[in-house]
Amino acid sequence: MSMYPIASYTTTASGGDATITLSSIPATFTHLQLRVFARDTTSGTGMTGGYMRFNGDSGGNYARHYVEGDGASATSGASSPSQFSAGQFLVMPKAGDTANAWATWVIDILDYANTNKNKTMKGIAGVDLNGSGQVYLGSSLWMSTAAINSILLGASTNFAQGTRVDLYGISTSNATGA
């Protein structure tokens, strides 16, 4: 199994980006991994969340489950299908939260090019703000068998300047399947 960089994006605009879209994703890999370093421009404190969409689908075709820890208790939740449910465990600091603190997300999308399966993504996400913070183990379902050829990451308001997104393709060996 080998991983290759497909695309990279850094938010450079001082006002940030409301969405970041990775398009023209080649279908030649077996799995995808997103590695994201993010912060949101939403005013105030208390952290906020992002979301994901695939292939420009803004319909209510996404669902999610998660387990979350906030430093005091652990909770689990789910959501009914909606257009914002994918990736709703993707926590970020708000503009008023601890300066210079950023979220880390590592998201795997398995069999993204398979046209016989609805798509399931799983990920881990975390923010620690020295006195507050959240960590998530989450999953989301996109109820479509279409191969994923684009991924949209959405912010609560905007992704802050310096937000970084890297998309990788994971290949398998034809010989061993490993």
């Binding site: 979350e68 820890g69 906030d70 430093g71 652990a74 183990l137």
Partner: peptide
């Protein structure tokens, strides 16, 4: 250092913070 944790022990889940 500060840390936020989430774990499960086979019967329940818990979260903690250490600053």
């Amino acid at each position: 250092k500060s840390v936020t944790t989430l774990n499960g022990n086979g019967s329940s889940a818990a979260s903690a913070r250490y600053t």
